[in-house]
Each structure stands twice: as structure tokens, then as C-alpha cells.
Amino acid sequence: MTRDDDRAATATDDEPLLVLPDDLRHELKEPMGPIETDADRLLKAVDGPLIAVGDVVTYHLLEAGRPPDVAVVDERTKRKTVDEEIRETVTEETTLEVANPPAELSAAMIEALVDALARDEPTTILVDGEEDLVALPAIVAAPEGASVVYGQPDEGMVHVKVADDHREAMRDLLERFEGDTERFWSLLEGC
């Protein structure tokens, strides 16, 4: 399968799967792990697969010499377009492209995440829309001991070392989203 075929195969199922209800937004403001501002220091605590959610986080990890095993980017930070250097750096090795509207998780996004986690080579998913919520299913789907790193606006990078307690907390949170939770969980099966 060519890279273009690969992208097209994943990008067809972009209808809303889960939608973040307004009453849960406040719960997502709190970081799910320690905040780090130095990528080198953060990477010293990484000893398994590395999943990065966000352009600036991905950029800092790449600049520190550690390409994420899975990177999810949308060419935006704090709702604004990232600068050209960050955009070019984080999208240079784009493998998959998917649509994922703001405050939602599309089926295409979840399928791409599961696909990327199963690959042996580093995989970058370029999102048309917004990637902010992808850290939640990434924590559920990532293997034990993996690191999920995402940005906390104006504070730094949040590092979640995946363990059962994190998975359980994310499962509980995702169950409270609106939409087709049954299909969502079926797409994450096997992770």
C-alpha cells in the first residue's frame, strides 16, 4: 500500500463518534500528570513507547532528538496556526491524515490512532480539525509503561506514564462523553 493509499484508507470515517459535553470541559483543564518545560529532562523519564499529542510538544521532542513513536498534530497551537518552522518540522514525516472536528473524537481519528500504535516505525498523524482530545484515548490504548505527552497551554508538557490507574480514569471520563461510546470502545478493542 502506498502512503497516499494509506492516508485515504484511514480518512473516510470522519463522522462524530464522541463529543465533549460542556459540563466536562472543566475536568480537562487539570493536567493528568507532571508538567515539564525541558524536553531533555522529560525524556529521561521515558523508557517505553512515546506518544506526543500536539505540534509544540512534538516539535520539542524532535528537537531533543527523540522522534515520538506516534505524533498527533494539527498545525495549530492555542487555536492559532503554528509558525512555519514548527509546521515543517512536525509534518515532514506525515504518515496518516484524518479529519477530527474540535471538541470531538471521530471514528477516523480513533482508527488512525490504533493503526499508528500498531506500527513498528514512527508515525505522524496530521489532523484536519483539532487533536486536543486524542490524549485521552491514547492513554487508554497505549501499552503499559508508554509515555503520553501533551501540551498544557502556557505551562509546558504534561507527561503521563501509562498505568492501569490512568487508563481507568480516562475510561471513566470517556464514558461521560456524548455519542456512540459502544462503537468507540469497539474501535479501541485489542489495545
Rank of each mutant, 00 (worst) to 15 (best):
K44M: 10
K44Q: 13
A45E: 15
V46S: 08
V46H: 09
G48P: 03
I51A: 02
V53L: 01
G54M: 11
V57K: 02
V57T: 11
Y59D: 15
H60D: 15
H60G: 02
L61Q: 07
L61T: 10
L62H: 06
E63G: 01
A64V: 13
A64T: 14
G65E: 14
P67A: 06
P67Q: 06
P67H: 06
P67G: 05
P68H: 05
D69V: 08
D69Y: 04
A71E: 07
V72M: 03
V72C: 02
D74T: 03
D74K: 02
E75F: 00
E75V: 01
R76F: 07
K78A: 14
K78Y: 10
R79G: 11
K80T: 10
K80R: 15
T81P: 07
V82Y: 09
D83C: 08
R87K: 12
T89S: 10
V90D: 03
T91F: 01
T91E: 09
T91I: 05
E92S: 11
E93A: 11
L96H: 10
L96D: 11
L96P: 03
E97S: 05
E97P: 00
A99Y: 09
N100L: 01
P102A: 15
A103F: 09
M109W: 03
M109R: 03
M109K: 01
M109L: 12
I110Q: 04
L113G: 06
L113V: 04
L113H: 08
L113Q: 10
D115S: 12
A116E: 13
L117P: 11
L117H: 13
A118S: 15
A118R: 15
A118C: 08
R119N: 12
D120I: 00
D120S: 09
D120G: 14
E121F: 03
E121N: 05
P122H: 11
P122R: 09
P122A: 12
I125M: 01
